[in-house]
Simulated assay, not measured.
Amino acid sequence: MLTKITSNPKLVFLLDCLGALLSAFLLGVALPSFQPIFGMPNEILYGLAALACLFAIYSFWNYRWFKENWRPYLRGIAIVNLLYCCLTAALVIYFRQELTKWGFLYFLQEMVVIMVVVGLEFKIITRKN
């Protein structure tokens, strides 16, 4: 499956879109419902969910209306994903007193998953073909 995704950049946009939608749901619906278990303030969760929605729209747009010159668009979402991880890390540090171990673990795993996707995106961008 990974070979199929990496051989078709259009599918990478779809993967990114689906991941962003999952993050938006978790950050905007699931985590706020259990805020005391995770500790991150709801306003921050909603802001992160809004960003994930924007990323999903961008990725879906590129998936649906795929252009021949896809590298700049994939580079754009990879960079934005990387910046999102930096923002998340900064928020985890800033709210470290409020975060529970479950909140810390959630945001750590989210950053790890996003960084794996970013690595895949940059690998595809730099591939010769």
Rank of each mutant, 00 (worst) to 15 (best):
I57Y: 09
A49E: 04
S59V: 10
E121K: 08
L108K: 07
C85W: 00
Q109F: 14
M115F: 10
A20L: 05
W61I: 15
F60W: 11
F55E: 08
R75Q: 14
Y84W: 12
G47I: 02
T3W: 01
S7L: 15
G28C: 02
W61Q: 15
F34G: 02
F104W: 13
E110A: 08
R127F: 01
L26P: 00
A89N: 12
L120M: 12
N8V: 10
M1G: 10
I57F: 13
L82I: 09
L14R: 06
I125G: 04
Y84K: 07
Y106R: 00
S33L: 15
L120E: 05
A89T: 14
P32K: 00
N81A: 07
V113H: 07
R96D: 09
S23T: 06
N42I: 15
G119C: 09
G19L: 06
L48N: 00
L15I: 04
Q35N: 12
L91Q: 01
M40W: 01
M40D: 02
K101C: 01
L26H: 01
F107Y: 01
Q109V: 15
N81G: 12
Q35T: 08
P32I: 04
I37A: 01
W61T: 15
W70A: 07
I5Q: 05
L120A: 09
Q109T: 14
F38K: 05
F38Q: 02
K4W: 03
I124N: 04
S59N: 11
L51D: 11
A89D: 13
A24G: 03
M1Y: 02
V113M: 14
Y94C: 11
N69S: 06
I125D: 03
E68Q: 13
N62L: 09
R96T: 03
S59D: 12
K128Q: 15
G103K: 00
V12P: 00
R64K: 13
E98T: 12
R75P: 00
